[in-house]
Write a protein that binds this DNA or RNA. Structure first.
Lengths: 287, 287
DNA sequence: AAATGTGATGCAGTGAGCGCAACACTAGTG
DNA sequence: CACTAGTGTTGCGCTCACTGCATCACATTT
């Protein structure tokens, strides 16, 4: 028999093996679930064991069973657990990538999300040079935001037109002329993976952004770099490629697509906290 | 000892309790994770037990630990598994429609499913205005959910009564009076294709929802819009028509045949597996 | 009807997880 | 600087819950 590394809990390992089997090959068409016997054979375990484990998993909502075919599928609780932490997770995990972008070009870098028709900046890392406007927590209409094109990359043209029309107070000035430009930019963002927005808030600023996708494949945020220096103007597309690449890496870290775990590079283990500086375990919750 | 009435696996229950704690309250700002002692106290379990369980969970990738603060958070594997849920697929497909609704009325729009007697919100798209409470992954009793009426539209009256009685803690207050109202609303949802729920969680919110049907014709989800602005109050039925129309389009995208009337003819898979016609456990497997 | 598959269940033995305690460690405290 | 108070980890008996084999109930195919 093959030796099982005994470091992990046996029950946990068994349950996760089962879940992994139920996850199947991802988007495979055999999404109607799997039977007990097949799973047992697939794992080389006892039917009874798998049957009992699945019953427990179902009781907890980790899997659910089609009452007709008696086959099991992944359950709602997995989704509920993951969905709740998605937002907090976003900001926390984004920091390294935003910093990397800011450092790479020595320009201001941002993390933005879409809130209705407004673009909310969640995180901003300034360049080494002066005047950095703090945008964190500030909402800007999507048309005026540099990251807007990336955030809308998944939208179909009609919706974008509606949004643009609704956001602009009245059909005036350059709106009509820029609408087609917007759609073109969005199409470019969709294909190339990054968007370049010229003359938004400020004529002196050009924003290069790229969409970030979460574990569901939806665009949940955008990374953005505002190119202010003349040096960058000549290589916007080069910058765009890098931003897109960074956004892609970030997306994978969020669980996008069928990405491999990425073993999380060995940490330098710097220091261990004894007593936490600020006692936070006070948020009272009644069980 | 504390009572252990459930017949579920003890280890699994413990692990899920831990994960649930790590998930936090969702929108909470406590994204930097939780320590072992705090989790143990929160759960009323032994520190050692929690420590060992977390190590196993980390080994499996279900949680990850900040090497600096030594605090735990949910890990990549949970998100990877969640992405393979059929709920994730539903969300992916629903996103454009939910966005369209949110944009059309500039109100919060949701995608909800029924889980037992609870309504689980899978996707929420906020309006451009104000602050938006993140409901994704949160379950609410069916009576208190705006989309509840749409999700129950196919149920016969007796079962609805049962569910309402079972969900309400005791036969009290407006329950009896609203029961008939519920049945009327459901009947309306059945015939008109949309439901209007008044005074649910909040007196200031009115939810307009419509059922979504899958390829079998069964109601698997509901689209919902929460009307908060006074402007919308006067045209709830007009909004309802649009929500119903959107839900119908989405249903078609899910494979719902428009021709199939109501009773959801059993066509694809009415049989229960005795012996599988074609043995499918042939896909070679490499761990 | 039998045959062959499905998933569920009873039961005895044993191995794994539980709890208590002591441990190593760090950061505040006087 | 020792002291204290907090952190998280580990050693080790004891017990219980899980394993595995068997059989069972049920459904589909022949």
């Amino acid at each position: 028999m093959t030796e099982k590394p005994p470091l992990s809990s046996a029950g946990l390992r068994r349950d996760l093996e089962i879940l992994e089997v139920l996850a199947g090959h991802g988007d495979d068409r055999d999404a109607d679930g799997f039977g007990v016997s097949w799973i047992a054979e697939r794992l080389g375990r006892e039917k009874s064991q798998v049957s009992r484990a699945l019953r427990s998993l179902e009781l907890e909502g980790m899997v659910e069973r089609d009452p007709l075919t008696r086959r099991y599928r992944l359950g709602w609780r997995l989704f509920a657990l993951a969905a709740r932490t998605q937002h907090a997770r976003l900001v926390r995990l984004a920091a390294p990538y935003v910093r990397r972008l800011a450092a790479a070009f020595d320009e201001d870098a941002y993390l933005c999300v879409l809130r209705g028709s407004m673009v909310l900046t969640l995180l901003s890392v300034p360049s080494s040079r002066a005047y950095h406007r703090v945008w964190e927590g500030v909402s800007v209409p999507v048309i005026m935001a540099g990251a807007g094109r990336s955030l809308l990359a998944d939208w179909d043209d009609d919706r974008v037109r509606e949004l643009l029309k609704a956001t602009l107070p009245s059909g005036l000035d350059s709106a009509v002329s820029s609408e087609e430009q917007w759609l073109a930019d969005i199409a470019h963002a969709r294909s190339a993976g990054y968007a370049i927005s010229d003359t938004e808030l400020d004529d002196s600023e050009i924003a290069v952004s790229a969409p970030v996708r979460d574990h569901r494949g939806l665009i949940t945020a955008a990374l953005s770099v505002s190119v202010t220096r003349a040096a960058g103007r000549s290589r916007l597309h080069e910058i765009g490629e890098i931003v897109a690449q960074t956004a892609a890496e970030f997306s994978i870290a969020l669980g996008h697509s069928t990405s491999s775990p990425r073993p999380a590079a060995e940490q330098p283990r710097p220091r261990r906290p004894g007593r936490p500086a600020a006692a936070r375990p006070d948020s009272r919750v009644e069980p």
